[in-house]
Design a protein around this nucleic acid. Structure first.
Lengths: 186, 186
DNA sequence: CAATCATTGTACCGAACGGTACAATGATAA
DNA sequence: TTATCATTGTACCGTTCGGTACAATGATTG
């Protein structure tokens, strides 16, 4: 018996493993152990090895945020897009039980491998959020500060809620951030 | 020729390596390579191996924060202690070029090894900060929310400034947080 | 049917991993 | 000076690492 995969099916599985174990902590044997996918398949779809696997995961994550978060922030009604961001982010990160792979990669030397992708992800998030805030009436400076505060606040909430093993901390932090945004936008 | 170390001298060196490489990324060979300390010495001072080394580093970090941040927040003048916190944190994290080891450990499976230490570090930080805020006139609920926001904001600012490779982001984030604290405390 | 070819499982590689054993070293104190 | 003992350098252990080679598999196509 032989299970056949597609590259698109493997990437989300890899994503979850990289999220939990980090780049260095993720070994090929643990990938096989958790997914049942052997080295033959992995190196068939990702000839570049572990680095290409992580790169594919980052691209997949980036694509999701671009579609679900950044584009609405840039194009849709500002206050609706911002409100949708809070709920979508809370769902995506599973109320803090799931971490942000890009943020985690930024913290250790893994950053050196993917500095361009990591920088891009956050720059575009902040830019899109600032765009929405300005359309909602903020000045450019005010919007930039608030956008940075929002994105950093989300990342910090992930760290904190995981450290305290308390998902309420994450949801509560998002709520506090949302209220602050509301108060500035009106 | 033979160099002689003391345990207290080794811990800060280990701290810097764990910070940069993470727990899984830190190998004994890289410790030796960077510090010149051989396995003989390392296992003499830390018979428990890598786990004991990281544990000693966490205890050292915790001790520094307890002395330099938490105790002033609990005992000294509230607004002075909070003001000192911003500057001390900015110095300690070298304007964002240095990361928070405890926060980084919280993000991946390393958390499982040190969940007690990690939880303690953040709980005590938040409690001390809330104590100062209440002495400065905040209600308990307001103080708790603001304390969580402050600690999470610092962690998020570390992630963001490293991701963007921009130390100004860290300093600016701390400044924004400080202003928010000031506005609530008066 | 036969041929093709993407996909997979398995065996294997050298290097690096965390950890152990122990003799050489050298400062200290009797 | 000699004995002691904390400390260190080195050689070595079995295991796991990321990665490669390649034959077996099996669906697709002619």
């Amino acid at each position: 018996m032989k299970t056949v995969y597609e590259r698109a099916d493997i990437v989300p599985l890899l994503a979850e493993i990289f999220r939990e174990l980090g780049y260095e902590g993720t070994s090929l044997s643990r990938i096989t152990e958790r997914t049942g996918i052997g080295k033959g398949s992995l190196y068939h779809f990702f000839p570049g090895g572990k680095q290409e696997m992580a790169g594919a995961v980052l691209a997949d994550v980036d694509g999701w945020f671009e579609h679900a978060i950044y584009q609405p922030l840039r194009k849709d009604d500002a206050s609706e897009a911002i409100a949708a961001m809070w709920t979508n982010v809370n769902d995506y990160f599973r109320s803090g039980r799931r971490i942000c792979l890009v943020g985690a990669f930024a913290l250790d030397e893994t950053r050196e491998r993917f500095s361009a992708e990591i920088g891009d992800y956050f720059i575009r998030w902040i830019d899109a959020l600032r765009s929405a805030l300005m359309r909602a009436g903020c000045s450019e400076g005010e919007a930039q500060t608030l956008a940075e505060e929002g994105v950093a606040g989300i990342q910090g909430a992930l760290v904190l809620s995981r450290a305290l093993d308390d998902r309420m901390v994450f949801t509560r932090s998002l709520d506090t951030l949302a209220k602050r945004f509301d108060s500035v936008m009106r």
